[in-house]
């Protein structure tokens, strides 16, 4: 029952307006046909399940229907930011670069 700031509607909204779309930044392999079964299986099934900060996609189902990225702490539901899909990549890359 948290609140998410929809980066498209530009205001905080109740969780009920959104749906969860899973881990963010799982890119579809450019050439699926060249993937081994194991590689393809990783793409399909292997998801991070961290206790702590998690980059994930949410959809504003009751609002603008856009998908966007949220950085959420799975342990306490703290939210560190929400970005449009285009903005999110830079924020994510910047954080990954720090690690």
């Amino acid at each position: 029952m948290f609140v998410i700031n929809c980066p498209h509607c530009n205001e905080p909204r109740e969780e009920e307006e959104f749906h969860y779309e899973g881990e963010a930044f799982i890119a579809r392999p450019a050439e699926p046909e060249t993937q081994t079964d194991a590689e393809w299986g990783d793409y399909l099934f292997m998801k991070k399940n961290p206790k702590g900060w998690h980059w994930e996609m949410w959809g504003h189902s009751a609002g603008c229907r856009k998908l966007f990225v949220v950085k959420r702490n799975t342990a306490n539901h703290a939210i560190d930011g929400a970005w449009t899909l285009t903005e999110a990549r830079a924020a994510y890359d910047a954080e990954m670069a720090k690690i």
């Binding site: 749906h19 996609m57 959809g59 856009k66 998908l67 899909l85």
Partner: peptide, 13 residues
């Protein structure tokens, strides 16, 4: 509907 939007918004904008 969400499925189509998802692929369009994420992979094939």
């Amino acid at each position: 509907m969400s499925w189509l939007e998802k692929w369009h918004q994420t992979e094939w904008p």
